[in-house]
Simulated assay, not measured.
Amino acid sequence: MAATRIMVSASNIGTSSSLLFKTAVSPSFKPQCLSFCFNNNTRLVSKKRAFTCSALYKPEIQIKEEGQPETLDYRVFFVDNSGKKVSPWHDIPLHVGDGAFNFIVEIPKESSAKMEVATDEIFTPIKQDTKKGKLRYYPYNINWNYGLLPQTWEDPSLANPEVDGAFGDNDPVDVVEIGESRGNVGQLVKVKPLGCLAMIDEGELDWKIVAISLDDPKASLVNDVDDVEKHFPGTLTAIRDWFRDYKIPDGKPANKFGLGNKAANKDYALKVITETNESWAKLVKRSTPAGELSLV
């Protein structure tokens, strides 16, 4: 009997998530789908979305691949337990209670393919970014799990007076997850924020929330930005330097950082999350023009 390739291991999610795998094995089976079942009966998508950080339910979703990795056609879709496609950006709740948030892995640590939620495609699947028709890769591996906070949006019409008047970058808020486990593309992880960096990329504000998985062995030891330096020495500097310099090999200038070029604390990170959640709410309620963004 042929062995199957499991996209996400139980150790990566953690036993606290009550993960159940739904796979079938046969000699001709080609694994394309993995179920995440969090033990409750609440549906992921309701007729009325909650447009604040108050959603406390845990979604039941499946990760479904279409196409082959490292091709222009490759997509990672999210589907609910009825088989209906849903948006990882719009339909997965931001808040999971007790100060924790849902984080969606786009780029696993120690990899270089520039994966991202396709904000302009229906159901906003994860795909590999392109430039001039070619797949994009970082010039070197990223050293942390990288992805987004659902139900957040950095409004490009809003100038932030605290960060050199920079406007939002028109994307969900990015997360740098510093735990020891390597994630998988599309993996849903419960994290707690520890701080944030205000990256300015070609004049656009691109927040980087520094967070840790609740299932990481050191999660109980780190609760704010000062704890990161104590238990993960050098990590904040390494994150800042990585994002400052990664475009230089392509001949572009280094990125800059606001807020004194330092990581702000947890309270500031929570402020950023709240404000960008509010911006997302205005977007999906069409109080703010969507442009080419998909709201489905």
Rank of each mutant, 00 (worst) to 15 (best):
A2I: 05
A2L: 04
I6T: 05
V8Y: 05
N12A: 02
G14Q: 07
G14C: 11
S16K: 07
L19I: 12
L19W: 04
F21D: 05
T23K: 03
A24H: 12
A24K: 12
V25T: 15
S26H: 14
F29T: 15
Q32W: 07
C33N: 05
F38I: 14
N41I: 15
N41K: 12
R43S: 13
V45H: 04
A50K: 13
A50P: 11
S54Q: 12
L56F: 12
P59T: 09
P59V: 08
E60T: 10
I63V: 08
G67E: 04
T71G: 06
R75L: 02
R75F: 00
V86L: 02
W89I: 00
W89S: 00
P93G: 01
P93Q: 02
P93V: 00
H95G: 04
V96H: 08
G97S: 09
G99S: 07
G99R: 05
A100K: 14
A100F: 13
F101R: 01
N102S: 08
V105N: 02
I107E: 01
P108A: 01
S111A: 00
A113N: 00
K114D: 09
L135E: 02
L135Y: 02
Y137L: 07
Y140M: 09
W144F: 11
Y146W: 03
Y146V: 02
Y146N: 02
L148S: 01
L148H: 01
L149N: 01
P150C: 00
P156V: 03
S157I: 04
N160A: 10
V163S: 10
D164F: 11
D164S: 14
A166V: 11
D169S: 09
N170D: 15
P172W: 06
V173W: 02
V175P: 09
E177S: 06
R182V: 13
V185A: 05
G186I: 09
Q187T: 08
K192W: 05
L194A: 03
M199S: 13
L205T: 15
D206H: 15
I209Y: 11
L214W: 09
D216H: 09
D216W: 05
A219R: 08
V225H: 01
D226E: 04
D226S: 00
D226R: 03
E229D: 15
F232L: 12
P233K: 12
G234I: 13
T237E: 15
F243D: 15
Y246Q: 10
P249T: 11
P249G: 06
A254E: 15
N255Y: 14
K256G: 11
L259W: 15
N265Q: 12
N265H: 15
K266R: 13
K266S: 08
K266Y: 07
S279V: 04
R286P: 10
A290Q: 13
